[in-house]
Amino acid sequence: MISRRLVLAFPEKIVTRPITYRLIKDFDLQFNILRAEITADIEGKMLIEISGTKKQIEEGLKYLENEGVSIQDASKDIIVDTEKCISCGVCPSLCITQALEINPVTHRLLFDKNKCILCGLCANSCPVNAIKLKI
């Protein structure tokens, strides 16, 4: 029995399909949604932890990929260096969970770690390298 933490990205059209249910039922995987962000009009993202045998996990992931879900390993941690940050606004446009936002009053970047699903989309986007993701 092994566990993996993964970020799943759902294209718009399959967001509502009950694929998570099938993972549990058909592939006998233990499936834990740690964080999720699915909106009607933007791609959905989910940070999950799945446990099962190596074979079950492999087959489950293959099924997901066939359904059009893209899968990547979750990062372990994210650090936003507020000293380096110039509060431009590049990373907020990439962050689907709105963990990164420019405060409209102070114009400074706010990072809400509780909203972050460690998807890594913001990682290489910061022009002054203020965002570090540990993999």
Binding site: I42, I86, C88, G89, V90, P92, S93, L94, H107
Partner: peptide, 9 residues
């Protein structure tokens, strides 16, 4: 979502 390259702040 939109994002600015230049920093208004």
């Amino acid at each position: 979502p939109t994002g600015s390259l230049s920093s208004y702040g």
